[in-house]
């Protein structure tokens, strides 16, 4: 069984990537299970999706903590501890990253174990061919090829089926197929040593003790409890205030759903970028057109 875990951000096509891979392998006759994991869904939030592909019925469920392949759709997640992208990374496993950097750079920078790092600038190819940065078909194509689970025909049929089901136009689907084939041809099959359960010493089951309140009760006392989870790295676009145009109406200040905009002593809005998640509501609401957006790439 091959276990694939995708990481990306909401809106990037990660769930669809896992479904294209799943459907392609299914069309090739494999037993397949695929599933996305999302919490409170929001565009830009980290999202994970899983594929299990096997010649025998799949006797596993749920999240994959011991992947054979980790596929990273958004490189900024490498710096997000909460996204936990390195979980279960191991010697001999495959670590695929959508990036313009070299594999060696990633190996060194993140001190990875001796896994096979494969890089490809999937976003670049997708933007150039499709015109949008949704990497569902292209990312799935890379993993299809690397795992050798599906040929071009199955891949193309899977892309058609899955992109149709999310109601994309035929023209867009064709462009996605074109970009996917470009990616497919750039990659080559890599032998995979699949994970086998091998307990050295199992986890220790403990007898959970009784705790009096407050410890034993799920109550949050801390103010600003986001202190350990900055959402600023969710941004694909950054709102920037042009103070020459700003008329200090304060609309952005009251519109931000995350309270990331405060007013300074002269009543000018100030954005707190550590937590601004780039929803761009402030940008939409500013009638003076004083908020501009900048695409954020290569933030690491």
């Amino acid at each position: 069984m091959i276990r694939v875990r995708f990481h990306g951000r909401g809106g990037q096509g990660i769930k669809t990537a896992s479904r294209i891979l799943g459907t392609a392998a299914f069309l090739e006759g494999y037993y397949v299970q695929d599933a996305p994991l999302y919490g409170a869904e929001r565009r830009g939030a980290p999202i994970t999706a899983f594929d299990r592909i096997s010649k025998e019925p799949v006797l596993e469920r749920g999240i994959i903590t011991n992947p054979d392949i980790i596929a990273i759709g958004d490189e900024t997640l490498l710096n997000d501890a909460a996204a936990n992208v390195f979980q279960g990374i191991r010697k001999g496993g495959i670590f695929f990253v959508n990036t313009h950097y070299e594999a060696s750079h990633i190996l060194e920078r993140y001190c990875l174990p001796e896994c096979k790092v494969i890089v490809h600038d999937v976003t670049d190819i997708t933007i150039n061919t499709v015109g949008k940065a949704s990497v569902s078909a292209t990312l799935a194509a890379c993993i299809c090829r690397i795992t050798g689970t599906a040929g071009k025909e199955a891949l193309i049929n899977a892309i058609k089926k899955e992109l149709k089901s999310i109601e994309l136009k035929d023209e867009t689907i064709d462009k996605n197929i074109e970009a996917a084939i470009l990616c497919y041809d750039k990659m080559s099959e890599v032998p995979i040593e699949t994970y086998r359960f091998n307990p050295v010493s199992g986890p220790k089951i403990i007898a959970v003790k009784h705790y009096l309140p407050p410890k034993g009760v799920a109550v949050i006392y801390a103010k600003g409890n986001t202190k350990k989870r900055k959402t600023g790295n969710w941004r694909l676009f950054k709102p920037c205030i042009n103070y020459e145009r700003c008329v200090r109406c304060g609309i952005c200040f009251v519109s931000c759903p995350d309270g990331c905009i405060s007013l300074d002593t002269d009543n000018y809005p100030v954005i707190e970028y550590a937590n601004c998640k780039g929803c761009l509501i402030c940008y939409e609401e500013c009638s003076a057109k004083a908020i501009e957006t900048k695409r954020e790439v290569r933030t690491w």
Partner: peptide
């Protein structure tokens, strides 16, 4: 009953409790 809960789970929980400011 035995609750399936490991040492590692307790660490995770303590971290949550810490974030909650208890």
């Amino acid at each position: 009953p035995i609750l399936l809960f490991t040492e590692e789970d307790m660490k995770v929980t303590n971290n949550i409790i810490d974030i909650a400011g208890i």
